[in-house]
Write a protein that binds this DNA or RNA. Structure first.
Length: 491
RNA sequence: GCCGCCUUAGCUCAGUUGGUUAGAGCGCUAGAAUGUGGAUCUAGAGGUCCCCUGUUCGAUUCAGGGAGGCGGUACCA
């Protein structure tokens, strides 16, 4: 049989991804774009490690003596649990609390990095993915929240997505107020109601109504138990959700103010939204960029006030052409309680997170990622093994001149293979020096890009060879200037 | 977790109403062409037909179970 079962099958764990040169270039470009916006807003970078003590992340299960399933965890030497961070906010709270004395307040920072969630992956959902966050810690006012929303919008614009997203804004206090008025008191029921509201754009009014009441059966036949509200309660919630869509944010807010069910807590939230809407208006952010939307919930329980979310306004399909449910590509809100887990002082904070990986996936799937093809190096071919010192010298000259260059390192001394290699690397040019050139003090430079163009018409291989499209000869001393000139001409 | 669909060569997929040597395109390797990429032609390598159990003279094909993938749904701190 001769079957070798000892060989390991190379396979990626589900929900994780390898990234090649083009992907990395695209991601770096996105990161740089986002970074420049955050810098311009006056935020400074900070970096925290991938691991934190689980208790610092707040993800210890109260009943059992181990961390939440959703986080990747392991035990340190002293048996204390450590976890891979699942977002960049909890680690920031820890960092701020730990360095409280030295940090300026408000503390305005950004940071970017991979976070990890041990969950079932889906379209645009990975178990390792990149986020790019900005936070203002120690600023209580709605102007700090409004700034976050405007920065989110500016970031999306900078990423070339003008008019193709919307930042939706709501306030948890409004939600809480409505629920209180409706007499929804148990925490569990509250959560279920919030989740139901969150599904509005997914399932529509009917779906939400079912989820608020008995429950809903989805297309795959699965049944989701509802919140079990009475008809009267459902009406209150729906009335609040389905205020008429109007032209401006302040009009939108007025619609809710008109509802008699709004209690003191709800009105507090409304006032904050009014303040934010006024700032959006005066700064020229229209409803098509930032919209007050009472359907925004956000899952995280630590949000205490304004919450916001970036949504793409174009449909996304996967590689198979199937329409795909694509979540938000960024979000955030005010989390006034997070730092107080570590410190006695009340520390208000607000921030948001850009889902870099998810956004990149959406852009790639919709063909909006832009051209990030990576240009290869100039390759110096090895014609004579004895001359590699000479070839290496040429490479060094090119590198010293700032040109990306390498000597062919493969096994094959076959000329054609070396050219095929350069072609596959997307090299701009190769340098050819055999005995003929050496004796005459010359080098052959082959412009692979021009050559490809010139060769398009050539069908016959003999002609193709003798024609040597894109190839020319210069004195050895002219190597670097000739290559430079060629590269300049190519861009 | 629950529901649906899927799994055959590196990739995309045919096919076998249960039968002996399981195919194509692309890709890969080599040659035509030993100093010239592409196109062309020729040849070659590459398979546990996802795994296990059962039914059967015989299973890649049928049945049951499992795993993995895709999608939905739940959860998502």
């Amino acid at each position: 049989m001769g079957k070798d079962n000892s060989r390991v099958k190379p396979r990626l764990p589900r929900g994780f991804e390898d990234r090649g040169a083009a992907d990395i270039a695209a991601m770096n470009q996105m990161i740089e774009t986002i970074r420049s916006v955050y810098e311009r807003y006056g935020f400074d970078p900070v970096e925290t490690p991938m691991f934190e003590y689980t208790e610092a992340l707040g993800k210890f299960l109260p009943d059992e003596d181990r961390p939440n399933q959703g986080v990747f965890s392991l035990q340190d030497d002293d048996e204390s649990w450590m976890s891979l961070r699942y977002d960049l906010t909890a680690p920031l709270a820890r960092h701020f609390a730990e360095n409280y004395q030295d940090l300026p307040k408000p503390y305005r920072t950004y940071r970017q990095g991979y976070v990890f969630r041990n969950e079932k992956p889906g379209p645009g959902r990975f178990r390792q993915f990149m986020q790019f966050d900005a936070d203002t810690v120690g600023a209580p006012g709605p102007e700090a929240d409004a700034e976050m929303c405007m920065m989110m919008a500016d970031t999306m614009d900078a990423l070339g997505l003008v008019g193709r997203y919307v930042v939706r804004v709501n306030n948890r206090k409004v939600l809480d107020g409505v629920l209180e008025s409706a007499g929804v008191t148990s925490d569990e029921q509250k959560l279920t109601v919030l989740r139901a509201i969150d599904k509005l754009d997914k399932f529509g009014a009917q779906g939400v109504k079912q989820l608020l009441g008995e429950g809903r059966k989805d297309d795959s036949g699965d049944f989701t138990k509802g919140a079990g509200l009475t008809e009267y309660q459902v009406d209150i919630v729906l009335k609040y959700l389905f205020t008429d869509l109007v032209k401006t944010n302040s009009e939108q807010i007025d619609e809710v103010i008109g509802l008699s069910e709004l209690n003191a807590r709800g009105r507090e939230g409304i006032e904050e939204l009014q303040d934010m809407a006024a700032l959006f208006f005066s700064a020229g952010y229209d409803v098509d960029r930032i919209r007050i939307d009472f359907g925004v919930v956000r899952g995280l329980e630590y949000y205490t006030g304004p919450v916001f979310e970036i949504e793409l306004t174009f449909p996304v399909q996967n590689e198979k052409g199937q329409d795909v449910v694509f979540g938000s590509v960024g979000g955030g809100g005010r989390y006034d309680g997070l730092v107080s887990r570590f410190r006695p002082e009340a520390t208000p904070a607000t921030g948001f997170s850009m889902g870099v990986s998810r956004l990149m996936t959406a852009l790639r799937l919709t063909g909006n990622l832009g051209d990030t093809e990576v240009q290869g190096p100039v390759v110096v071919l090895v014609m004579d093994r004895e001359q590699i010192a000479d070839y290496q010298q040429m490479v060094a000259e090119l590198r010293n001149a700032g040109v990306r260059a390498e000597m062919f390192m493969g096994q094959s001394k076959n000329f054609g293979k070396q050219l095929a290699y350069a072609d596959k690397r997307n090299s701009p040019a190769v340098v050819i020096v055999g005995s003929d050139e050496r004796e005459n003090g010359k080098v052959q430079i082959k412009d692979l890009i021009e050559g490809k163009r010139a060769a398009a018409a050539i069908k016959d291989n003999a002609e193709w060879k003798s024609e040597r499209p894109g190839q020319f000869e210069v004195p050895r001393s002219e190597l670097v200037p000739a290559i430079r000139k060629l590269l300049d001409g190519q861009d």
